[in-house]
Design a protein around this nucleic acid. Structure first.
Length: 427
RNA sequence: GCCGCCGUGGCUCAGCCCGGUAGAGCGGCUGGCUGUUAACCAGUCGGUCAAAGGUCCGAAUCCUUUCGGCGGCGCCA
């Protein structure tokens, strides 16, 4: 009697052998002479049959949907079973009898979201979480391959990274602190010690955005390194994307198939990506939107139009300085243009923003003042320019936006187990 | 911050426009049947219609406000 995972049986490794599985009741169909149990564990779902004559019958009869159980029987191939294999049960032991499970066939989006803690058991969420874990694994793999060191920045911060209006404030003993919106400034500190650094950590944004691509807490993959320029940055980002997409395409075929997602899209992701300047983007968009002019920020609709043209990830760079953050480096001969780049993907729009950072202390102070920021709040940040300043660049990519695009999810909330949005933070 | 939509038994919905105190399916329960694929058949339990106020002889249905949810824009990853 071997304890096996359901996947092993479905892969045909246990044919005609006696096996024991542990899991939960996924479906139950009960007849006079025969009970069909669909049992799931973390690896898959398998059909089990219990005959009236089996010693397992009386326990199987009592089982309810989502009850935890141990089941022993003979695994065999059977064309009638979903998945092609089933277990003929000889013994069933109830581990935890479930009460009437609230999630049934008919379910609305709202109800599913209220039942998130139980919905995470669904096939869909199980598969999405597996792909998510793989994306994290492959991203780390790429950073490590490129000699980056993973670091751990703080979540509590005392000064804003982006605009102050999107900050979550909180009481920190008798002080006021914030939740970080990006770890960039902290990575900038660490490049002077470790050079190439990255982190995968939450970022928090108090944006009251009500869309299918916003979370108030999202996981940010950020990298920062010295002696880097825009070309280095874009090359790294497209390399990262290519690596993650190719590895997922190779190793997550079962998950994509069951989710009904198109994995070929990922096999096609190869560097180099198309690159257009902001000015070129404006020219392209003017055809459809004549009101658009240089200096306007690209809206979501604009991004989607561009993305549909390319049909794959691409870069837009050289944005107007006026619509970018204070730390963005500007061209010395064209201060109205910032060395900033966004990566866009179809349907979602921006999934990453990066750029060169201003390394000149005086220009940085000037830019802070232009944006009504107090240089004295950023003393430590200015120190980085006082002591061995160096040209450097970095980027931040939204993990959930990446996943939403990869898996073609209807809503970003399904890319993370416990989504936080303006209205949802339970459980 | 602005705009739109939604809120009826445990769940999914119909009824609301053209007011007269609720109807179906699923689930539950009981029974039947079936190598079933979130099956099928019969019976049965179950709601006063998000909340408050108003109009009216009479409100789930009309009006107002509040609460909750979803989405769009803006902003962002």
């Amino acid at each position: 009697m071997a304890l096996v995972k359901i996947r092993e049986i479905l892969d045909g490794k246990c044919e005609n052998t006696n096996v024991t599985i542990r899991g939960w009741v996924y479906r139950k169909r009960e007849g006079k002479e025969l009970i069909f149990l669909l049992v799931r564990d973390s690896t898959g779902v398998i059909q089990c049959t219990v005959k009236k004559a089996s010693p397992a019958w009386s326990e199987a009869e009592k089982l309810t949907i989502e009850s935890a159980l141990t089941l022993e029987g003979t695994a065999k191939q059977d064309k009638r079973a979903p998945g092609g294999y089933e277990i003929s049960a000889e013994a069933v032991s109830i581990v935890g009898l479930a009460e009437l499970f609230p999630i049934t066939k008919d379910k609305s989006e709202e109800f599913i979201r209220d039942m998130r803690h139980l919905w995470l058991r669904s096939r869909k969420m199980n598969l999405v979480m597996k792909v998510r874990a793989k994306v994290l694994e492959y991203a780390r793999e790429y950073f490590e391959k490129e000699s980056f060191t993973e670091v751990s920045p703080p979540m509590f911060i005392s000064a804003a990274v982006e605009g102050g209006s999107t900050l979550f404030g909180l009481k920190y003993f008798d002080q006021n602190l914030y939740l970080t919106q990006s770890s960039q400034l902290y990575l900038e500190i660490l490049i002077y010690s470790l050079e190439k650094v990255y982190c995968i950590a939450p970022s928090f944004r108090a944006e009251k955005s009500r869309t299918i691509r916003h979370l108030t807490e999202y996981w940010h993959m950020e990298g920062e390194w010295p002696f880097a320029d825009m070309n280095d940055l874009m090359q790294f980002e497209e390399g990262l994307m290519e690596h993650v997409c190719q590895k997922v395409a190779q190793n997550c075929q079962k998950e994509f198939a069951e989710l009904g997602a198109d994995i070929n899209k990922l096999s096609e992701v190869k560097a180099p990506f198309p690159r257009i300047t902001y000015a070129e983007a404006i020219e392209r968009l003017k055809v459809k939107n004549p009101a658009l002019k240089w200096g306007d920020d690209l809206g979501y609709e604009d991004e989607k139009v561009l993305a549909e043209d390319f049909g794959k990830p691409f870069f837009v760079y050289d944005y107007p300085t006026a619509i970018k953050a204070f730390y963005c480096k500007t061209y010395r001969d064209r201060p109205e243009i910032a060395l900033s780049v966004d990566m866009m993907v179809p349907k979602i729009g921006e999934i990453s923003t990066g750029g060169q950072r201003e390394e000149d202390k005086d220009i940085l102070i000037k830019r802070m003042k232009e944006q009504d920021l107090k240089p004295e709040d950023y003393e430590w940040y200015l120190d980085l320019r006082r002591y061995g300043t160096v040209p450097h660049a970095g980027f931040g990519m939204g993990l959930e936006r990446l996943l939403t695009w990869m898996l073609d999810l209807d809503n970003i909330i399904d890319s993370i187990p416990f989504p936080r949005t303006t209205r949802r933070f339970y459980p």
